[in-house]
């Protein structure tokens, strides 16, 4: 968390749990070909917050193989351990506690409690229970949830530091499927709303940001692109473009044309 910077030095910073970030793109580190591709894609994305999974150490591993945290050092990136693969609140809690030890009393976690392997939709009741317990234990919880505005608000009220509704199922690349729900969540929120999951390409990320999301978290859209490093760069620009468009305030939609050139002084 050394990348925390004074807010004053970052115009339009993303603030999460008291820390400021210049980048509004958060990236996962799964599905890459190798560590080098992971490193280059994360670098090109400009992301400062990167998610990692917590898994059993491979006992057959050769000593000296690079580990993820060598490639993405915690003094440079804010590491966001996730609870991916957890289907019960208890498993998610256990994973977060291990992550806290793994990363030297690190408190920022991405909570996800899954309900079903086919859709990877969150089990929202288990997510609420896990979030409540994690907050009690002092964790800073960024929580993956459905695009349900009521549940999003409940999670905020429980003390989550960011609420992260899905745009579409994890890894689906379908883009923001329910813009009005995302909009409702944003309008009611007092914590950052980060679209997590479902983004497929740069325009999807831009749409999320134009709706007013505070950030976007993605993994597969970059890792499964034919050129992940180039897509990471595309996403960086889409997030910046979408954010600036949101702040600029778009023109109203009109049914009919409105000429851009003045009508006075035409030669005809």
């Amino acid at each position: 968390m050394t990348q925390a910077q004074p807010t004053q030095s970052l115009p339009d910073a993303l603030r999460i749990a008291g820390r400021s970030y210049a980048s509004r793109l958060l990236v996962g580190t799964g599905k890459y070909k190798d560590m080098e591709q992971t490193r280059r894609a994360v670098e090109a994305s400009g992301a400062e917050i990167v998610t990692v999974a917590v898994r059993r150490t491979n006992l057959g591993q050769k000593p000296g193989e690079p580990s993820l945290l060598d490639v993405l050092p915690p003094d440079r990136y804010t590491i966001l351990p996730n609870t991916a693969g957890c289907y019960t609140a208890e498993d998610a809690l256990r994973t977060c506690r291990l992550a806290r030890e793994l990363l030297d009393d690190h408190r920022l976690v991405k909570l996800e409690v899954l309900g079903d392997a086919k859709t990877l939709f969150p089990d929202v009741t288990a997510t609420l229970a896990a979030a409540e317990q994690l907050v009690k234990e002092g964790f800073e919880v960024m929580v993956y949830t459905s695009d349900d505005p009521i549940i999003a608000k409940r999670l905020e009220e429980l003390g989550c530091v960011a609420v992260m509704p899905l745009a579409a199922p994890i890894g689906s690349g379908l883009g923001v499927q329910n813009r009005y729900n995302i909009l409702s969540i944003i309008e009611n929120a007092r914590v950052p709303i980060i679209v997590d999951a479902g983004v497929g390409t740069a325009s999807d990320a831009a749409i999320a940001m134009e709706l007013g999301c505070d950030g976007v978290l993605m993994n597969t859209a970059i890792a499964e692109a034919k050129d992940p490093v180039l897509m990471a760069s595309a996403m960086k620009h889409a997030i910046i473009g979408g954010r600036e468009a949101f702040r600029a305030g778009r023109m109203p939609r009109r049914r009919y044309a409105s000429a851009s050139s003045p009508l006075d002084g035409t030669v005809a």
Binding site: T29, V52, T57, S67, N82
Partner: peptide
């Protein structure tokens, strides 16, 4: 139960103990 790294040198194992050793890997 999680055993903090600082206590690893003093914690002795017994037969039948179950240890989970985890690390960070790529994930989304």
């Amino acid at each position: 139960d999680i055993v903090p790294r600082s206590r690893w040198p003093e914690v002795h194992l017994s037969g039948g103990d179950r240890a989970e050793i985890v690390r960070a890997i790529g994930g989304g």
